[in-house]
Amino acid sequence: MSAAATSRVHVQYDSLERQHDTARLGMWVFLGSESLLFAGLFALYAAYRFAYPVEFHAASAHANLVIGTINTYILLTSSLTMALAIHATRRGRRRETVAFLAATIAFGLGFDVLKIVEYAGHLAEGLAPGDYYAFTALPAHGVVLYVTLYYLLTGLHALHVTGGVCVLVWLALRAQRGDFTPQSHIALELGGLYWHLVDLVWIFLWPLLYLIR
């Protein structure tokens, strides 16, 4: 789509502003349903943690706190660069927009790489989900539920990070091409909202999986 196509007011709207507001509303509803997708797993975590408090405590001591914490700061900072990318577009600064989007993409990829290193370390130790659990330091009872939830929650989140990076690459290419104007850049805004949701989910995952004592 070209800039002309995205800034055209569709027939059912009386202004571009209203058209964009409708798109934002759709995005917020989508983000709400995304939150509920994760909420189901959070509720499962709460239930199993109540059932196996000692086991969850012991298991979380084997989470990689260093990588988990670095990734927390990475995602928080990527949210800043995302917000600044949109801010640059509002000021009509194309090169700045592309630079901030590139930084956000780099942070996202960095997060994924660290996550892979973390998974590889766990799998080498035998900390694998479900029937594949082979960790000798802790009996599987209860602990395996933490480990399986750890993979489910962080895996689903990492998929969102990866999907977000793909969206950001597309947005960066469009920004480079000059598709976004200070008045019309709704795709960039919606992509930004999605990226912030990825940050939001991690804000809760980090204490629940890495910091419980």
């Binding site: 507001d21 934002r24 509303l25 917020w28 509803v29 983000l31 709400g32 349903s33 939150s35 509920l36 909420a39 189901g40 959070f42 509720a43 709460a46 239930a47 109540f50």
Partner: peptide, 21 residues
């Protein structure tokens, strides 16, 4: 309207977690 849409989702999220807890 954006605040309402997201708040409703958050309210149901809190209900779900409170119910389970």
């Amino acid at each position: 309207i954006h605040r309402i849409a997201f708040s409703v989702a958050m309210a149901f999220l809190v209900l779900l977690v409170i119910g389970v807890l």
